Simulated scan of single mutants.
Amino acid sequence: MRSGTAHFRFYEELNDFLPPEKRKKSFPHVFPLTASIKDVIESLGVPHAEIDLILVNGKSVDFSYPLSDGDHVSVYPVFESLDITSITRLHPGPLRKPCFILDVHLGKLARYLRLLGFDTLYDTHYKDSEIVDLAQREHRIILTRDIGILKNKQVTHGYWLRETQPKKQVVEIIRRFDLVRQCKPFTRCLECNGKIIPLSQENNIIQPVPPGVKEMQDQFFQCESCLRLYWQGTHYSKLKTFVDTLLDKNK
């Protein structure tokens, strides 16, 4: 098979996918001449879902571009604020009201995002194909620690988490997608992602309330979907402190 050599340069967080010797600099790469630029880039380890702009010899191209010997390629990450509509954008624009779907390893992060009020799907039984299908049908951003799922050609919005600890991951997501002003804490059920609505004491509370709680609390909240009850007890105070600290640090 005939091969060619192109020079690549990846920018910003895309370097996270590369070995140290290839980060933040131009490097040569040998490729089969029948390959598309998407295939070559993903063979280097960078998923297409995190790419928003490719320049070849100074001109923007799409993923189907047939790479040629001697090409110089610059690859840029998804732009959340910069307007690049005048050139070949590789994905739809950023989702301004972001909702998420998480892979099976991110259960704690799912609870944190729901705590902040974000529509977040998570299920330990999801297969990769189901995650991709739901993301496509419901316009959700895939959050994952599995680079492979982001290489699926159907994925349009996805992000590979660099952090491994859930509390650091939620900070990473807030900063990456500039979410501070969109947070609406305590409006989503931590268990099922349903919307939480207030109840008065006159409402019929279906779920049992622990002894003494009804006498001490004058307001209850309930998930519209699973009917789980919430009230502002000591656990709420701890969560509120966590949320306030998190948002204050990331303003």
Rank of each mutant, 00 (worst) to 15 (best):
L115W: 03
D146A: 10
E202L: 09
E12Q: 11
S86E: 15
L90D: 04
P210H: 04
R181L: 12
E172P: 02
G233F: 08
L115E: 04
G93C: 08
V171H: 06
S129D: 14
V46E: 01
I197D: 00
D248L: 14
I197C: 01
S129F: 13
E13F: 14
Y230N: 02
S43V: 09
P77D: 10
F17Y: 14
T187Q: 05
N15I: 05
S81H: 14
G70C: 09
P166T: 00
H157I: 01
R89L: 08
Y159M: 09
I141N: 11
D71K: 11
L55E: 09
G194E: 00
C183G: 02
S36H: 13
D218W: 02
I174C: 03
R23L: 04
R137A: 15
K238L: 15
N250V: 03
L247P: 06
N152Q: 06
D248P: 03
N250H: 15
K59F: 08
F31W: 06
I174F: 04
M1H: 08
Y126K: 12
Y230P: 01
E215W: 02
I141P: 08
T164G: 06
N15C: 05
P19M: 00
G107C: 13
L134Q: 12
C189M: 03
T234Y: 12
P20S: 09
